[in-house]
Amino acid sequence: MSLLEIKGMTKRFGGLTAVDQVDFHVDEGEIVGVIGPNGAGKTTVFNIVTGFYDIDEGEMTFDGGSLIGLKPNQVTKRGIARTFQAIRLFPAMTVLENAMVGQHCRTRAGLGGAIFKGPRTIAEEKKIREAARDALAFFGKRLSPVENELAGSLSYADRRRLEIARAMATEAKLLLLDEPAAGMNPGEKEGLVTLIGRLRDEKGYAVVLIEHDMPVVKGVSDRVTALDYGKKIAEGTYGEVAKNPRVIEAYLGARHEETA
């Protein structure tokens, strides 16, 4: 059974069907690219999986358990962490603190712990700090040296990196990356391709990424799924999908030129 299994996912907003009967799966240690024109429903799929939207129809299971009805924080605890298309860090917290928030769902200290700071809380705080530093260290010299800077002061690419580090700190099994390459220069994009590969090879994550940048998708994806108008129109290796006439039509078709 796959790690993430989605069957017949459907979501409607008023009269608009944003996601229409989508089947989708991710296996452990697999990198899946999701492509499609703007408004194809890619981010909506992420939002449904992570519990921000209710699913209207369909099933989704993760690691053998249903995700339906879970709140975003519960989904995270199950082991799915995400990043956001428009970078959303906690800009006024430090880089380290951002990553430490990621550890929230793996730790328990409450009010009492905070106030009395007993040995257990101290040990837990240490664990949080170490896990957060580990996640930062994955990015080499990018984040660790600036761990006490405010996240809002980071460069654009470093913010994207910190978002991924924060997601890693949740100790997830599956990372959902929403357009991680957006706004990066070609050099940074190359680095990103390597990085996503390392996520799988070194850390064993399964990754789903939404991406418009085809070289990036081509470079990392084991499998690619294409969406258009909320429907899945193709699935397979990058080569297969790229040649699929429906995909080509979706990207180049005349009907999209009006809406683009």
Binding site: D54, I55, E59, T61, S66, I68, G69
Partner: peptide, 11 residues
């Protein structure tokens, strides 16, 4: 794997 109650019936 639908339960008898729709998922919307949260607490």
């Amino acid at each position: 794997m639908r339960l008898a109650l729709p998922e919307r019936w949260s607490v």
